[in-house]
Simulated scan of single mutants.
Amino acid sequence: MATWSGVFPAVTTKLKQDGAIDLAATQASIDRLIGNGVSGVIVLPMLGENASMRMEEKETVIRAAREVVAGRVPLLSGLAEISTDAAAASARLFERFGAEGLMAFPSLGYKTDPRETAAWYKSLAAASGLPIMIYNNPIAYGVDVTPAILADLAGTPGIVAIKEETGDIRRITDLYNAHGDRFRIFCGVDDLILESMALGAIGWVSGMTNAWPRECVEIFNLCAAGRFADALGLYRLMTPAFHLDTHVKLVQYIKMAEHLVYGAPEWTRAPRLPLVGAEREMVISVISRTIADLAAREKRAA
């Protein structure tokens, strides 16, 4: 059984301005994340523009990630499909490409009811030998994997974790009350990580870790050690940037953060377009303020 815990960034897929994958930049970003202490990486999440990638591109990204990860941390891949057959086929392919686990979306083309949702994940677990983290984001995808649905999945050993992204902090307590430690609970919302860990979350699927891995790992480690008061100052400093992780344009926003922090390309694949006008200025302002505040914090600590 997978014993995942810690900070697992949802890695952005770096692109060139023409939309082609920038493999060197993607590998460099993964190496940077691992060098700054993350506990795992997830390629091809929603942040990685999974749904806009062809299968041959997904293969390229997973194989390239495996090469640079080189066994240092677990390597998961997002899995987002419409039909059960397509999801099962992708699971088998991703295992062959070198993924060590899946972060599995619900069906992208149909809002499954509770019985159908449980059947979807059971079928996916049976399709390969890879452990599965359920991607639970009902705000974006309209399907909520509730504690009751998880009760139906508790007898499926391949389902090991849940990325909790309902935005309702009470859900973590409800999950523990219903299922104890059966499922490893990961916070999936950057601006709820301190609260989530106070209630027992043992992992964090994070977007802004792409830009600030060292600082995000610091927040996580302080919380994991029960030092919430020590984590609070840094958490408050970074929360305005963390709020950008909850917006519909989080891909553009987080790539902009990476671009400003360490020079990664900001480009996305259409229909996502580059930020312009007042929105671009707002995002740059939030990120620039965070960069300045972190620099001041580091200077005070020196």
Rank of each mutant, 00 (worst) to 15 (best):
G203T: 06
D85F: 14
Y235E: 08
Q17G: 09
S90G: 06
R92A: 13
G142W: 00
D113E: 13
M55C: 08
I287R: 11
R66A: 15
K14D: 13
V68K: 03
L76N: 04
G263W: 00
E95R: 04
I254T: 13
L234K: 03
R182Q: 06
L260T: 00
Y253K: 02
C223H: 08
M133H: 09
A231Q: 06
G78S: 08
S52Y: 13
A99E: 04
K255E: 08
Q252E: 15
G207V: 00
P9R: 03
S285H: 14
N136E: 11
E165Q: 07
K255W: 04
L79K: 11
K122G: 02
I162S: 08
W4R: 03
T166I: 01
R297G: 09
A224R: 14
F220K: 05
T209V: 10
I254A: 12
L124E: 02
N177P: 08
V248G: 12
A241T: 13
I172D: 08
Q27V: 12
P274Y: 11
A91P: 01
D293M: 09
V251S: 14
V283Y: 11
L75Y: 00
R92T: 10
T173C: 13
S52H: 12
Y262H: 10
K58P: 09
M133D: 06
W212F: 15
A201T: 13
M133G: 06
Y253A: 08
F105D: 09
A154Y: 11
A119K: 01
T117I: 05
K14F: 11
P274V: 03
L273E: 12
A264M: 03
L273N: 14
P265H: 06
P74E: 04
R96L: 08
N137L: 12
F105P: 01
P274F: 14
H259I: 00
F97V: 12
A270M: 12
V7T: 09
A178H: 05
V217C: 07
L93P: 00
C187H: 07
W4S: 03
H247C: 13
V68M: 03
L153A: 08
D230H: 07
I185Q: 11
W4A: 04
R227F: 04
A118Q: 01
E195H: 14
A211Y: 05
V283Q: 12
P213R: 11
G233N: 11
